[in-house]
Computed example of a mutant assay.
Amino acid sequence: MGKVLVLGGTRYFGKRLVNLLLQEGVHEVTVATRGLTDAEFAGPVNRLVLDRSDESSLAKAAEAGPWDVIYDNICYSPNEAMAAVRAFEGRVGRYVLTSTLSVYGFVKSPLSEEDFNPYEYKWAAGERGEMEYGEAKRQAEAAFLQEASFPVAAMRIPIVLGPDDYTRRLHFHVERVMNGTPIGLPNPEAAMSFITSAETAAFLLWLGGSDLIGPVNASSDGELTISRMIAMIERETGKEARLLSEKEVEPENESPFGVPSSWVMDTSKAKAAGYEFDNVMDWMPDLIKQIAAGQA
Rank of each mutant, 00 (worst) to 15 (best):
R128K: 14
S261D: 14
A124D: 14
M232Q: 07
L204Y: 12
A273Y: 09
A140T: 01
A293R: 10
T196N: 02
A140F: 05
D38F: 09
G180V: 06
M281Q: 13
V85D: 01
A142D: 06
L48C: 09
T37Q: 15
E130F: 11
A140N: 03
I291A: 00
G274D: 05
E240A: 13
D72N: 08
A81H: 07
E135M: 13
A198H: 15
S262Q: 02
E254A: 12
K247D: 11
I183Y: 00
D286H: 15
Y76H: 09
M232P: 02
A142G: 05
H27K: 00
A125D: 15
G14M: 09
V49S: 10
P260R: 02
E250G: 13
Y12G: 10
E114Y: 13
E147W: 10
Q146P: 01
W263T: 05
S197P: 11
E28P: 06
R156C: 03
W123T: 07
S99Y: 07
D54Q: 08
R34T: 11
R47Q: 13
P188D: 02
A231D: 10
P182M: 06
S219K: 04
A42R: 04
K137A: 02
V69C: 08
F88M: 02
L97P: 09
Y121I: 11
G180Y: 00
V177S: 09
T181P: 06
F172V: 06
K108R: 10
V152G: 00
V31G: 03
E234S: 08
E147N: 12
R235I: 09
A143I: 02
V264P: 02
T33Y: 06
A61F: 02
I226C: 11
V18S: 01
G126T: 06
M281H: 15
A81K: 00
W67S: 00
K3E: 08
G180D: 02
K3H: 07
R86S: 09
V216M: 05
A201D: 03
N19A: 03
R128Y: 15
M82F: 15
P188T: 06
A218G: 06
A81C: 03
P66D: 05
G93Y: 06
R169F: 00
S262N: 05
R235D: 14
I195T: 06
L17K: 01
E189R: 14
I195L: 12
V264T: 07
P158C: 01
I233G: 04
Y12N: 11
V92F: 00
N179R: 15
T10N: 10
S57P: 04
S197Q: 06
Y275F: 08
M131S: 11
T33W: 08
M281G: 13
L145M: 07
I288P: 07
V85W: 01
Y76L: 11
V26S: 14
A270W: 01
V103G: 02
